[in-house]
Design a protein around this nucleic acid. Structure first.
Lengths: 198, 198
DNA sequence: ACCTGAACACCGTTCAAGT
DNA sequence: ACCTGAACACCGTTCAAGT
């Protein structure tokens, strides 16, 4: 049912997902979809849950909470980057679905066991998800034609020394390493908070 | 020129921004817009830059780098939440515009002065922006009708103890405090990294 | 140079009609 | 119950024609 929309979105992008196109992919005559789905919003929600379903179940806890948090965040990132054209869904659709509750429960338990309060574990989870999704969005965005690119060659090195300095690094820049930098840094911040709570 | 599109988007949302509606708002006959703007994508880019232009200039450095980084991040968040219906633009449009280069340069200088390497300052900036934008997206998303809401009352407390525990906290949950939690924690992580570089 | 009307190839959704 | 055709009120964009 949703599989057709999912496949279409993955092949041709989210903007290609129309009631007409999806119906056509199903060999059916367009308006019939409304008997199986509420409308287009519900259709996209279905696709969203389908993607979320690809998140692997939480592994049995065998390591430190730090490593476990990293594993969950990297798994989510992997799912997102595995379906680059569907990433915008995660920035548009409501985040909480029944499908995701098991993952949420596990993540909260992880953070509580690390020593965070109930409130802090909620904050930390929301922040982690916002970061992973936000960073995935920015990663995927790179694929676009950067027509706005200000033409780096014309950049005034005297006015923008730091930017100029970074342009040399840009070709070898590793966006996955960038993600791990953010994740590790945030986890280090959590550690410090646990050592000296205020 | 772009002001009309900006006003329309702010009043009625991004999906109301069509060439026809914008032209109508200008008292002109629709297809005339193509003489002033490349197409719809360019129009949205223009609106994007217009919003970015509202970011206040970096204040003269008078405090610690920690406070300066917080101020920049909170300023960006304030601009985003000041135009809730335009936030999705930041998840769709290319991030680097000439308009934003001054801000980028300042932020990089800030992070370098704190002691980060060139590469680390790039990572940190990208991560901070991804977090601020990602979190703003999630903040704004709350305004939507959460039709997917799984009906918390039917939730199995035995199966989801941590989630159940949090539902009680939810009514009094402060999303701004959540943002500051993330920001403070990330900055604390940066501090630790500076103390013991590896 | 700038604006326009008509047209093309699309949208989501409603609704009455079919089987 | 499920599917359909026609219709409504929209889209972005092209293009030849006007001033």
């Amino acid at each position: 049912v949703f599989q057709a929309a999912f496949g279409l979105a993955q092949r041709e992008g989210l903007e290609a997902v129309s009631m007409r196109r999806v119906a056509q992919a199903l060999g059916v005559e367009a308006m019939s979809l409304y008997h199986h789905v509420e409308g287009k919003a519900a259709l996209l929600d279905g696709v969203f849950e389908l993607v979320l379903g690809k998140l692997p179940p939480a592994p049995r806890r065998t390591t430190s909470w730090q490593r476990a948090v990293k594993e969950r965040a990297e798994s989510l990132r992997a799912v997102l980057l595995g379906h680059p054209r569907l990433v915008p869904l995660f920035a548009t659709r409501p985040a909480v679905t029944l499908e995701s509750l098991r993952h949420v429960e596990h993540a909260l338990e992880l953070l509580r066991a690390a020593g965070l309060s109930a409130r802090a574990s909620l904050d930390a989870l929301q922040v982690l998800v916002a970061f992973v999704v936000g960073h995935a969005v920015s990663t995927v965005r790179e694929g676009e034609a950067d027509r706005t690119a200000p033409g780096y060659e014309t950049l005034d090195a005297a006015q923008f020394p730091r930017v100029t300095e970074l342009i040399a690094l840009l070709p070898s820049h590793d966006v996955d390493a960038e993600f791990r930098f953010g994740l590790d840094t945030f986890i280090a911040g959590l550690e410090r908070r646990l050592e000296s709570p205020r």
